[in-house]
C-alpha cells in the first residue's frame, strides 16, 4: 500500500540518514528534493503516499511547503523531520496539519513507528 515516498531536505546527509532508518523490508519508490519549492513540485508530480519534510531549508522553508502541499491535497501525510524542536515550532507545524513530527537525528525506532502510524492512517482513510 505504501508505494511512493518523497523526502525533502537540503542536506544529502540527512536524506541518507533518514533512508538508513527506514524499515529495510519497505518496497517503495523514492523521490528526493533539496528545498521546499522543489519538494512542492515533486509532490504535485509524484503524488507520494508519504512525505518526509525538513523545516530549515533555503528557497522555500518547510512551513510554507507544508501549507502548499496540504492545499494541493488536504489528506496528504506529511511527517516533519527537523532539528528545530522548539515547542512553538512543533505546535505550529502540527496546527498547520502535519501528520507527525520526528526530531533530528532520527533513529530506526522513531522512523519505524512513524511509518507504522502512517500505514495505519492510510488503511483507515481507505476504509472510510
Amino acid at each position: 500500500m505504501l508505494k511512493k515516498i518523497l523526502i525533502v531536505d537540503d542536506s544529502p546527509v540527512a536524506i541518507r540518514i533518514l533512508k538508513v532508518c527506514l524499515p529495510p523490508e519497505l518496497d517503495v519508490e523514492f523521490m528526493e528534493a533539496k528545498n521546499g519549492a522543489e519538494g512542492l513540485e515533486c509532490f504535485k508530480r509524484f503524488k507520494p503516499d508519504l512525505t518526509f519534510l525538513d523545516l530549515t531549508m533555503p528557497v522555500m522553508d518547510g512551513f510554507e511547503a507544508l501549507e502548499e502541499m496540504l492545499k494541493v491535497d488536504n489528506k496528504a501525510l506529511v511527517i516533519i523531520v527537523s532539528a528545530d524542536v522548539q515547542k512553538q515550532v512543533v505546535d505550529r507545524v502540527m496546527s498547520l496539519g502535519a501528520f507527525l513530527m520526528v526530531y533530528k537525528p532520527p533513529s530506526r525506532n522513531t522512523i519505524q513507528a512513524a511509518v507504522n502510524k502512517a500505514v495505519a492512517k492510510m488503511q483507515e482513510m481507505r476504509v472510510s
Binding site: 546527509v13 532539528a83 528545530d84 524542536v85 515547542k87 515550532v89 533530528k104
Partner: peptide, 26 residues
C-alpha cells in the same frame, strides 16, 4: 547536518531559560 541538529536542540533548550523563539538559517 550535525550543526543543524545541535543548534536546533540548543535553541529549543534555550527557550526554557530565556523566553524566545529563534529562527536559524541553514
Amino acid at each position: 547536518e550535525v550543526m543543524n541538529i545541535s543548534f536546533g536542540n540548543a535553541v529549543a533548550e534555550l527557550a526554557e531559560i530565556i523566553d524566545v523563539l529563534i529562527r536559524l538559517s541553514v
